[in-house]
Design a protein around this nucleic acid. Structure first.
Length: 667
DNA sequence: GTTAGGG
DNA sequence: CCCTAAC
């Protein structure tokens, strides 16, 4: 039996298509990303600057382009990373295979090596195809995927890098993997003209909302659909889903497949993994990794010894990592079709204008407009995104490698991202702050401004959609395309939203209920509704069996593994009003009655929700207005909350004493 | 199934 | 919003 080496790639940095991210508005950015049709990537690979042709896709990695992929670089090994090899050295090789890992990470010092180009075959609903091109590279055995492009979503990267070889026995360690900062990203020139138009290409379709309950509801409903309050998600959304996955982590091993875990561990905030695959660390930040592990692992049944999982890691923040459910079977937004510039390998770096169409190409410049306002000009050249960890057999084909990387990239980019803002290394969480307040406008600080792409914990779609624009941001683990190996690893693009029919979680059904402010019923599931262009969109689909065997089934089971968390639906003022009124009448402790009284027709509000909301209301009323977040609740309501709470607390105490005395009397 | 409370 | 204990 031939030993099968594996190549592990860890992709840390990418640059996303301009227009899919905005420097302002995380939620909008997320929506854009999801709506942008980033479901169908073709991964192109280049070695030493040469784009691998389609025919070369199936070449084994060990013999692509006349070079051995993993022998391209050995030069950038850093001494300080030598300890990285330890886990690998000591790690036994499963199934007689040895690991040969290449770590790819985000580097701004681009060096000559091999590149990967991810071509995004986004498609609009009109059938036009947009092809943002990503280009990734390994630098110092780490890689960066960059997306350069114009304003219309055509991106071609120029990042390069070295991929370091590491044998299981002679692991040479990590290369330098410097994570790009915004400063790094900003150092190049800007194309101001490309900045402004980018957003329009990914503008969300209009989202009519049924507004059964008046204006205030309309407003809130709309907000609920769009606004992503990631602050809360950061604080609370990370633990629970992770928990569920931690439970499921036991199934990390499936069959004789093994999770590659040695290399990237140091970079992951990962816990030690005991032999049985159980995490020994309860760090919530790490839990998402397990999720990915499981996801990767469950995919491995594709081939006996071939496993090409990818792992992602959370990069910044506390959000759960694996929330990239919506990426592939994404709906297409209608709108001006984007042209695809095939083969474009150069172009302006994708960038985003942060504020008001400033035209300066200098980052961090502050200039005053005629109106006297200060504008912060941001040129975002790339985003840091969570790392990917890819493992692929050495004899896998280039095409499969491409697809593997592509899957990983797709999973991230299409998986529901949001933008995080870092200022001097510190995350700026308060979305309500102005740039001035946050210090972003300060000239001396703006160099330390950074943006990150973060997995979005609010992975569920906005609950309020029109039937015409269903735009369901559903999990991308559409089972059918994924399980159909001969087909493309990419889900077939469809014109409408795709709901995995075998999805155990009634996502849309549970989320979109016929309550007073909910959306219409989700559209029908149409997994087989393949677009006529689906074939054209996935030119890499024609693969040999071997290559197909190593194609990971992306996003499969990802969502299925965790119980669907209900979408966050902030209480509107009118709802708070109703709640306060009901509690004033019924008191605390009778939440079922409160529910029946005031929220009987709001099926998405359980009495537990009402109780929780009351809890937060009390808390909100006690804190200073400056500390409050979200939609402001009128002070009058908060006052009523406090008084009612005080009253009923006293009342309950009285009742309690009464009951106690009665009990004593009975005794 | 409800309630209460911690996460 | 989730989870769980307690009832």
């Amino acid at each position: 039996m031939v030993l099968q080496k594996r190549l592990d790639y860890e992709l840390i940095g990418y640059q996303v298509p301009k227009g899919s991210r905005s420097a302002r508005g995380k939620s909008v950015a997320r929506r854009k990303s999801e709506d942008n049709g980033m479901f169908a990537f073709e991964l192109l690979a280049t070695v030493a600057g040469k784009l691998l042709s389609e025919e070369e896709n199936d070449r084994p990695l060990t013999n692509c382009n006349g070079k051995t992929l993993h022998s391209i670089t050995k030069e950038s090994v850093k001494e300080e990373h030598k300890d990285e090899e330890k886990p690998l050295k000591t790690e036994p090789c499963d199934q007689g295979s040895c690991d040969e890992s290449i770590l790819i990470s985000d580097v701004d010092q681009l060096r000559q090596a091999q590149n990967f180009v991810v071509r995004n075959h986004g498609q609009t609903s009109s059938g036009e195809v947009s092809y943002p091109i990503f280009k990734s590279s390994c630098v110092g055995n780490k890689s960066e995927i960059r997306a350069n492009g114009d304003a219309f979503g055509n991106y071609a990267g120029s990042a390069r890098g070295d991929c370091n070889e590491r044998h299981s026995r002679s692991f040479s360690g990590y290369g330098e993997g410097k994570v790009s900062t915004l400063r790094d990203l900003m150092e190049e020139d800007v194309k101001p003209t490309a900045l402004v138009s980018s957003d329009s290409s990914v503008e969300l379709p209009p989202c009519p909302v049924r507004t059964p309950k008046g204006d205030s509801f309309t407003k809130h409903v709309n907000n609920m659909g769009i606004v992503s309050r990631d602050d809360d998600e950061n604080s609370s959304g990370c633990t629970q889903p992770s928990k569920a996955n931690a439970k499921a982590y036991r199934t990390q091993r499936i069959g004789n497949k093994r999770i590659k875990r040695s290399v990237a561990y140091k970079y992951w905030k990962a816990p030690t993994i005991s032999k049985d695959g159980q995490p020994s660390n309860t760090d919530p930040d790490v839990k998402p990794v397990y999720r990915n592990k499981k996801m990767c692992c469950t995919r491995r049944r594709i081939g006996p010894q071939i496993c090409t999982p990818f792992k992602k890691r959370k990069l910044v923040g506390t959000s759960s990592f694996l929330t990239s459910e919506g990426g592939i079977s994404r709906e297409y937004i209608s709108g001006p079709p984007e042209k695809f510039i095939k083969g474009e390998t150069t172009g302006s770096v994708a960038s985003v204008h942060g504020v008001h169409g400033a035209s300066s190409s200098l980052s961090g410049q502050k200039s005053s407009t005629e109106s006297g306002e200060f504008h912060v000009k941001l040129n975002i050249k790339s985003f840091r995104v969570p790392e990917l960890f890819i493992e692929i057999p050495e004899d896998a084909t280039v095409g499969s490698l491409k697809r593997t990387v592509m899957e990983a990239v797709t999973a991230i980019l299409g998986g529901g991202l949001r933008v995080g803002v870092l200022l001097q290394g510190k995350k700026v969480r308060d979305d309500d702050k102005t740039l001035l307040q946050a210090g972003i406008s300060h000239h001396d600080k703006i160099d330390s401004l950074g943006f990150t792409l973060e997995p979005n914990t609010a992975h569920t779609p906005p609950p309020l959609q029109s039937s015409e624009e269903p735009a369901l941001l559903l999990p991308c683990d559409a089972p059918k395309p994924l399980s159909r190996l001969p087909a493309s690893p990419l889900p077939n693009p469809v014109d409408g939203p795709v709901v995995p029919s075998d999805h155990p979680l009634a996502i849309t059904g549970s989320l979109i209920e016929s309550d007073q402010d909910s959306a219409p019923t989700p559209p029908e599931v149409s997994l087989d509704k393949t677009s006529p262009n689906s074939q054209a969109l996935v030119p890499v689909a024609a693969m040999n069996v071997e290559a197909l065997a190593v194609v990971p089934l992306p996003r499969k089971l990802r969502r299925n593994e965790l119980v669907q968390r209900r979408i966050r639906r902030p209480f509107s003022v009118s709802e708070v009003e109703a709640l306060v009124q009901a509690v004033e009448k019924l008191g605390t402790g009778r939440w079922r009655d409160v529910k029946l009284r005031a929220f009987d027709n709001a099926k998405h509000r359980t009495y537990v929700d009402l109780k929780d909301k009351w809890k937060t209301l009390v808390h909100t009323a006690r804190i200073s207005p400056q500390q409050r977040r979200g939609e402001p609740v009128p002070q009058e309501l908060l006052d009523r909350v406090l008084s009612a709470h005080a009253y009923w607390s006293q009342h309950q105490a009285k009742l309690h004493v009464k009951q106690q005395s009665e009990a004593c009397l009975l005794l």
